[in-house]
Amino acid sequence: MQLVRTPQLRTRNRCARIAARLQHLLYVSTAQRVLLPDGMASTLRSLRSGSALVGIVDSEEGRTHMMREHRSLILWPNLLALALLAAACSDQTNLNTALKRPSFWVGGEHPCTPGKWTGGGRIDPPTAIDPDPADRAPGTTPVGTTPINGKVTFGFNVFIGVVNGDCIVTKGEIQVVHHPSKTRWHVSIHDNADDAGETVFAFTYNSGQCVVVYNPSTGITARVNGQQGSEQVRMSACDKGEPGSSPGYGPDSFRWEAMRTASTPGTAPGGSTNATRGDTDQNLLTGGNIQAH
């Protein structure tokens, strides 16, 4: 199991890592060190003490090295590192992501257990018996603004891995059917991305018994009723034992959230609109099984 940060934090982490590496380059002694002209040294010092890096790097340690190394620096590697730092700290995608955060935002640092998750079954929200509260994904509300009630059947198979420090669904498919509204959703994930080309993220929680598959900024794109349109969705699933459904409820559970988009007017269940999303809430299975491998 690995700890990964959600994508919004990823850029900041990368920035911090690069900054730390830059700090290391600035002050580590080598045989090829050269004295930096006063002007450039001043620029670097100001950069080092600049507000962008304050709070990210531990500059006190750097100052100690600075004293020891008599302000000697490596010129070209430093310039390269500066460029790298600039690139790492300026990420326009991150800005856009932050603007869209309310859609399917799940913040914080979460574990990632690479492997595959497979399941199929049904839920019947609203469930008379609530699942373990820990089965709800961290950062999500107990119930969505627009409930999806009635029979829901599903099947999925997703592969999760850590790619460039992110917890990613590398490939997989999700099929969900809401029977009262006769709505079908289908998600196809290939090469880490959904049909819209957006990266599909995941993280595990509840001691690795649960997984959430999502995209924090846009949601995952699901085709609705064939090619009639698309919606943005998020899936949560918990593997709490074998087999996943005893007569009655659980122990496994499943949650499906879907937000109508402009391309699917009138198809989202529960009367959801572009501003709200339908939500089954986390429900114990009334049939089927979920397995984490």
Partner: peptide, 14 residues
Amino acid sequence: TTTGALGATEAGAQ
């Protein structure tokens, strides 16, 4: 719909 997987400690189909 049918799904299935083989794992190191458990396997299943539904």
